[in-house]
Amino acid sequence: MSGIATFLTRRRGGASWHFTDVLAWIWLVAGLLLMFGPVVWLGLSSFKTRAALSEFPPTLLPYETAMVHVEGFDEPLPLYRVMMEDGEERLLVQVRRIGTVAQMADPEAPEEIIRVPLAARQPVREIKLATENYSTPFKRYNFLRYFYNSVFVTVVATIITLIFNSMAAFALSKYEFKGRTAVLAIILATLMVPLSVIIIPLFSVINGLNLFNSLWGVILPTVATPTGVFLLRQYMLTIPDELLEAARMDHASEWKIYWRIVLPLAMPAVAVLAIFSVMWRWNDFLWPLIVLSDQELYTLQVGLNSFQGELNVQWHYVLAMTVVSMLPVVVIFAFLQRFITSGIASTGIK
């Protein structure tokens, strides 16, 4: 008996189970369910038809009641498995329902109507992926437009961020000039002042510059990220000055030094910033919500929010579009997981 116990509790290396091992495993499994579960559920639900979505309790997979075309009827009719009074099981279509009785018919011989109590019939179900959840919003609603706007904002803002931030970081890391400490201090101070504190005056600035209700109004306030300047500057500080001096001896101009020497060497940090910037801009919500009033200009996040805020929420489209809007992020994460996590761990930014 005790032999079995030791066998069951034996571990690699011969050490026995400690209760913290058990706790750790419980934590991990619970974490798996809680973190992954909702996303999996979203994915499964996004393939369900509107009817399947309104079912309660819900099914795990996107089932659909099978429908068959029957001679003499224009619409396809739902197929049921019916327990007849004599104990025989038959496949019948439902022609109509009256109270607690269903009028049913054999699909082969539809003329004869069979009356069946509701309790005696079970719908025949088959797995069906409602891909129209994905295609319709793009065709019928503005989602293609939203998608395009999001891509535009993300790409343009990221490119400008990388150029502006790296130039500033270069100046702040490789030149001695009056006021450098002051500039650094100002940037550092604003690291702590988030956008949400200045939305009111920023709104009037955007209006004053005629950028209200324009994608540029979304892009410009975000590109001078102090975080990016700091990240790049810290990295550029590690590039030896001797390299710059050698280039100067070779008559390279300062611009060339930035562009041909420092920037390529700072690529690892630039890449980290690029990834972060893509994430930030793709996921931005509050600021686009404020700046964009015209439906045509909505980004995916704002569009999704307005879509789900409607009185009669069309969940089947909302869920599918939610999946679409998280897809780029998921793909980036799948390929660059190690890169992102080590970037965050070493810089402490997000």
């Binding site: 973190m35 909702p38 979203l42 996921n283 999704l304 909302v318 939610t322 992020v329 980036i332 992102i340």
Partner: peptide, 13 residues
């Protein structure tokens, strides 16, 4: 991974 999801997506999920 949820860190990377947008707040709108998180809320809708």
């Amino acid at each position: 991974f949820p860190v990377l999801l947008s707040p709108v997506v998180v809320a809708l999920i």
